[in-house]
Design a protein around this nucleic acid. Structure first.
Lengths: 145, 145
DNA sequence: TATGTTACTTGCAATTTGCAAGCATAAAAA
DNA sequence: TTTTTATGCTTGCAAATTGCAAGTAACATA
């Protein structure tokens, strides 16, 4: 007898295609949305579902919920009670998530070099070119010596 | 009168969701396969359709064809006649594609830090930690001074 | 007590993926 | 010269994923 399963996108288990580091990383955040959520947390200080929804790229509510679950499963973010409100949920980057900063920074630098991007991104790319270490230090998970 | 279109995945036009550099980059290679093709070209010297197929992650033939077309549309790779054979096609990274090396290197370093990867990747990550600039110099598109 | 706010879930149509099976051209072997 | 083989795709189709629009449940505020 079939039990009516909680249909929907209840993927929480990530399957890895190989032991290649690139493929492993892609198995966690290799899609069009995950890194945008991480961007919002890392660079824009967003940390609630509602804030992520208001991103400039119009993610659908179900996809956002799915990606948050996947990122949590991948150890990139953590989900806790919001200190200021019982209706809100607080999403935070884990150290593993914060450690994606160097990757994000290279991505911004590359994209800015070859595409037309918004003014703040141009300014940020200039900063990266000038002193990448300083930029990265603002996001580092490893304690400064 | 309907003309029988070449059905199938003939996407060649990339649409950009916003002028954010992260989202722009993802619009080009934000999926589970594109960066694996780039990996094969950058680190393994592969440059034919057949070689890409033999990657460790088992990409389907239609998806490979689609991604090669997309990467070409995104200016990441170029497609030319193979100098050694008329049946083969030569795929090469453009400077824009080669410039993804820093991104790839950060991705490898991150992944190796948090996941179990193959021995060569561990060795490569160690190299990166020791002297990232030296590693990157091997792939650089900008002439050494 | 009624109306918001916030974080989701659900149903469904439209895309996209993945698999297995072609197919066309060129080269090599018989 | 005929037959395989190699190479780079395309096609059909089922299954999975995405995207849109419309709920829903638990608080919170008026």
């Amino acid at each position: 007898m079939q039990v009516k399963q909680a249909v929907y996108l209840k993927r929480k288990k990530i399957t890895y295609r190989s032991d290649c580091p690139i493929s492993t990383a892609l198995d966690i955040f290799g899609d069009k949305w995950s890194l945008l959520i991480i961007r919002d947390m890392l660079f824009k200080g967003k940390n609630t579902y509602g804030e992520f929804l208001k991103g400039g790229e119009n993610i659908a509510t179900n996809i956002l919920a799915d990606r948050l679950a996947l990122l949590e499963a991948g150890g990139i973010i953590s989900k806790t009670a919001h200190p200021g409100s019982k209706t809100k949920v607080l999403y935070k980057l884990t150290p593993k998530g914060i450690d994606l900063a160097p990757l994000m920074v290279e991505m911004i630098a590359w994209s800015e070099k070859y595409h037309q991007v918004h003014p703040e991104a141009i300014a940020f790319a200039k900063e990266i070119k000038k002193d990448k270490a300083a930029v990265l230090a603002r996001f580092s998970t490893t304690p400064k010596t």
